[in-house]
């Protein structure tokens, strides 16, 4: 097993702000944020569906805006606020979007749900009362195969109503 240590991979020391906590990491420089979250921080709530930027499943928030963690390198993200699904609830108290998704059945298999919840949170932070079309526009980068999107839209509307 000695040989595997010999691989020539450049590693960097990074400090990342993830869900408001500072994380110190030593990482191969080419590892994506998706891989680092899941493998080095055990934040497996961030899922992946293609790892090529085509499905939206791995969406996280960077300074509050949705971006795809499969296309981000942690070296670019020092000093920026990274939010994952694990950072959405306040302690044991769910975010109103999480509650609404649970109540209305907006998660079926639940695999696209973390990315969709984060995109929805970003939307509601910039637009407290979005129309159905605005919801569709904002979520158009997140694919879901189970729900037909209907209950997701209803849940976002319910949460928006409650957050006023």
């Amino acid at each position: 097993m000695k040989n595997e240590l010999a691989r020539d991979v450049e590693r960097v020391v990074l400090f990342l702000d993830v869900n408001g906590e500072r994380r110190d990491l030593l990482l191969p420089v080419h590892k994506t944020l998706l891989e680092v979250l899941r493998e080095d921080m055990q934040l497996t709530g961030t899922k992946h569906g293609c790892e090529l930027g085509e499905c939206g499943t791995c969406t996280v928030l960077i300074d509050g805006r949705p971006e795809l963690s499969c296309l981000l390198l942690p070296v670019q993200l020092q000093g920026r606020a990274i939010t994952t699904i694990e950072g959405m609830a306040h302690g044991a108290e769910l975010h109103p979007l999480q509650t609404a998704f649970a109540e209305l059945g907006a998660a079926q298999c639940g695999y696209c749900t973390p990315g969709i919840l984060l995109s929805a949170r970003s939307l509601l932070e910039s637009n407290a009362k979005p129309s159905r079309d605005e919801i569709r526009e904002a979520l158009a980068g997140n694919l879901c195969r189970c729900t037909g999107y209907t209950k997701i839209i209803e849940a976002i509307e319910l949460a928006a109503g409650r957050m006023k």
Partner: peptide, 9 residues
């Protein structure tokens, strides 16, 4: 261009 999360990056 593409989708909202990609336009953010």
């Amino acid at each position: 261009v593409s989708s909202p999360p990609l336009r953010n990056a």
